[in-house]
Nucleic acid binder design. Structure first.
Lengths: 210, 210, 210, 210
DNA sequence: CATGAATGAGGATTCATTCAT
DNA sequence: TATGAATGAATCCTCATTCAT
């Protein structure tokens, strides 16, 4: 006798079907944000994109706007981590890891442009009523820590010279994200070449001065 | 036929009084966006901030939301240009100009945090119905050209080595903007020190490799 | 053809199991109304209170909202009748019965505050689309007849003087219910003492004038 | 030169026109509650009743459901006070005042049945999320104090015997309200006669025992 | 010039109910 | 018998914009 398909796939108290629906909605939300921008993303647009007949369905699966977009952010970050992480671990030196971090982030953007764009939109657009960024952003900034960690260790290993890890990390992350933004405006640029050049820039910036 | 007193002071077909009103509204819009975030900025919040009794006035002076926020962006960019421009011209070498560009941009942020924050919010939040960035953003990206120009000339003068001006410019601009974003989240950082370190990073990145 | 085991225990065409489920749901409905108020009582809150996993169960056992709340009212009235009835019969004179009616009604309220509160909420909140009270209320008002009957007979027996039974009954019932309402707002009052005083009031009101 | 009509009629910072609109909406709300019951009273029903084209108008004039219904309650209580108050003051003895209180309350109900019904509905239907009655009710219960005060003073003056003013007041108020409720269900009763009989009841109840 | 009342579309969310399994 | 996913109407509320004055 088989355990029912539903119960088998539970995650966090949710059934397989529930999880599937949530994933479907999250995917639709990502696409909608990427296409229309976060401020113009409404439940009805998402429902339409997902092929759902009403916005009620979304409220049925997500407690509210916040929960939905928190999950969107988590999903995108997870996808990015799964894309970038293995490539990072393959490298031996921290200098090589840094180069791969930059290049594979841009490669991820090239492969999932919607994901990255949506992430940026949501992180900037999501505030509580005191204009303080909410949960989603904490996750997003947490992703900066991977980079800080890499720089920290590389510094300790003597591979990098003369840098404040967090300042550098913020710069690198900003450079990457802004590159995506420009890529969105002028989609004809070659992201792979861009990635190499960006990596060159920060490779040089982390070298010891003569 | 006499030119009316009003018409004498025109700017783009508008009278002094009109310009004053528009400026008042633009100022209020900047403050409102900075305080509540672009998604929570409505005409009524702006009217309230400006001390106006109704939103009708705003619609009276601006053809629509787009026109208002275009003017906000233009105003902020003008302020930034007026702040950064003179400091740039004071320097002789392009390398020095680059350093000053970075430092004075962060200094501008420190002095007018609302302006910069509002700009970032609006640029990301303002799209037409096809999600194409509107006029505002074109202006914003235009501001990148100053930086590209500086790098271009410095390259020609042999001051910088080995860089693609536009790639570098996008990286620098992104690094600066992301620094502001982090400053907003953790307001205790010293923007002046940050500016120096950021300038160091890109100073090194533009040097010839040994 | 055999009568099935299930059918053997029918009540109004329903099996034991069905009755048990209905009772469980009715109990949950009473508690929910008492806790959250009728306007905030939804099927999902009731299902939650009953430990059911979905509202579908409720719709399955009750034809609709109206049927459920009709049964709630009937249940509460039955409980009140079972509480008050025997105490009433124990008394010999109608004057004594009247006193016991008042006191035991308040005692019932003290013992089952949720029941009484729920009843009041539902009676006021349940209307059909023409604002005509539905079945539930008819039952509720029917409960007034017990009181009218007591007054009628006492009058005939010469125990009460000078009163119109229905007017008096409405007054007494209103006084009792309003006492509960005040008890809900200020729960520190002693319902037993209140009951005695209330009984005193109407005991005096039913005496012949000197 | 005349002060503008608008400014002339201000009340609490509101213009004449605003006040008129608010009054119109409040009147429509009273009628709607009286006709459909509080639980079935929605902004759209009120807007329809008021002849307004959208519910937006109501939100435009009232900060929310709570503010609207608070004003409804205040309006009804004011009307009742204006009706009952003068009649009360005309009487010399507290015993006479008590009789007039009861009779004129029923007379008010006869004249403005919608008002009283709406009041009862709202007071019972309005709770915050902890099921605690809100502001409106405080006003409503405050109206009980007039009665308590009358009984208190009559007791001190030796006009009433042997009663706990608050218990008596709650009883009287409950009797009055329940009489209205029955009047609503069976509209053929003569409220004036009812009022006299109700007054008789409590007149007798407050007499000294022989 | 300026006002502020009015509009109506669109926002998220909750609800009772249905239906296939 | 029981489930829970799906529905879509209805909830209150906010919004940018218009228009008569």
């Amino acid at each position: 006798m088989l355990v029912s398909a539903k119960r088998a796939g539970e995650q966090g108290g949710r059934t397989f079907t529930e999880e599937a629906r949530r994933a479907q909605i999250v995917r639709a939300a990502i696409d909608t944000v990427a296409e229309h921008g976060y401020p113009h993303t409404s439940f009805s647009k998402i429902a339409q994109q997902a092929g759902l007949s009403s916005t009620g369905m979304i409220s049925y699966y997500f407690a509210g706007k916040a929960e939905l977009f928190d999950e969107v952010v988590a999903t995108v970050l997870r996808a990015a981590e799964e894309f970038v992480g293995p490539r990072l671990q393959r490298e031996q030196t921290y200098r090589a890891k840094l180069r791969v971090y930059i290049e594979s982030n841009l490669a991820f953007m090239a492969e999932y442009p919607g994901h990255t764009l949506a992430l940026a939109e949501i992180v900037l657009g999501t505030r509580d009523r005191d204009n303080v960024p909410v949960g989603a952003v904490n996750q997003a900034t947490a992703s900066l820590d991977v980079l800080v960690d890499c720089l920290d260790k590389g510094l300790a290993a003597g591979e990098f010279a003369d840098l404040e890890p967090r300042v550098m990390a913020v710069a690198i992350r900003g450079a990457i994200d802004n590159t995506l933004r420009h890529h969105m405006l002028t989609p004809d640029v070659d992201l792979e070449a861009y990635g190499r050049q960006l990596a060159d820039i920060f490779d040089r910036a982390t070298r010891a001065t003569a």
